[in-house]
Amino acid sequence: MLFSLRFVLAGALAHPLSLPRSQTPPTPGAPKRFPQITLEQIAPEGQQLAQDIIKLSSVGLAGPYNVMFRSPVYADRLNKLLDYLRFNTSLPTRLNEFAIIIQGNEWKSQIEWFAHYPLALKAGLLQQIADDVKKGVRPANMKPDEEVVYDVSMALIRTHNVPDELFNRAKAILGEQQLVDLVAVSGTYVGVAMLLALGQEMPPEGKPLPFPAN
């Protein structure tokens, strides 16, 4: 069986278009990979962190937090980083949420899109722009700073590089700190998407999946 699994993975990696393109829910009837953690199960030293998360998170201790708390020190460090990136970053909220949904769409991350699509619209991102991202097309009618966020994000996703012309344009429009914070939030939410994929975490029961399940 191990040989056959390696064979399947090797074939999928050789033909990346055959790989699943959306994070898939658990098999019906299968146990949850990480049973949902409750406040009562969290050690005393983690109680304050858990309560802070509950106050701010649209999914409570579910989603990435359910996976994060399997490594309590990591959960604490990551939450501090998320606190900066969500609420204290130099980027305007509109651009910050735009960067997050770009990564959410790239990873077809059900919870990232479910949670951050409405936050992006609330922050002032045009719905047409967010919907174009989900369609996989370059959005029309973007402001110059939105164009920079999109172009830098997509350059790093597609080529793992930022060409000189794009770097100079991005630096001129955003400045150094905002440009660094853009990359920081983008990379962090790739990590969050990985945690969600690892745990097969999905939106609350009864809510439709933003991306069709494979």
Rank of each mutant, 00 (worst) to 15 (best):
M1W: 12
F3D: 15
V8A: 14
L9R: 15
S18N: 03
L19I: 13
Q23N: 06
Q23M: 03
T24Q: 13
P25T: 00
P28Y: 06
G29M: 01
P31S: 07
P35Q: 04
Q36P: 00
I42V: 14
G46L: 07
Q47A: 13
L56Q: 15
S57A: 13
M68W: 08
M68D: 09
F69I: 08
S71C: 03
S71Q: 11
V73W: 00
D76C: 00
D76F: 00
L81T: 02
L82D: 10
D83R: 14
Y84E: 14
S90W: 03
R94C: 06
L95W: 06
N96S: 09
F98Y: 01
Q110L: 05
E112N: 14
F114T: 05
A115V: 09
P118A: 12
Q127D: 07
Q128E: 15
I129M: 01
A130G: 05
D132N: 05
V133R: 00
K135A: 03
G136C: 09
R138Q: 05
S153Y: 11
S153W: 10
L156N: 07
I157L: 11
R158W: 01
T159K: 15
H160N: 14
F167A: 02
A172T: 06
Q177V: 11
Q177I: 09
L182H: 14
V183P: 04
V185G: 12
S186C: 04
T188W: 01
G199L: 07
Q200A: 15
G206C: 10
G206T: 10
K207N: 02
P212Y: 04
P212N: 10
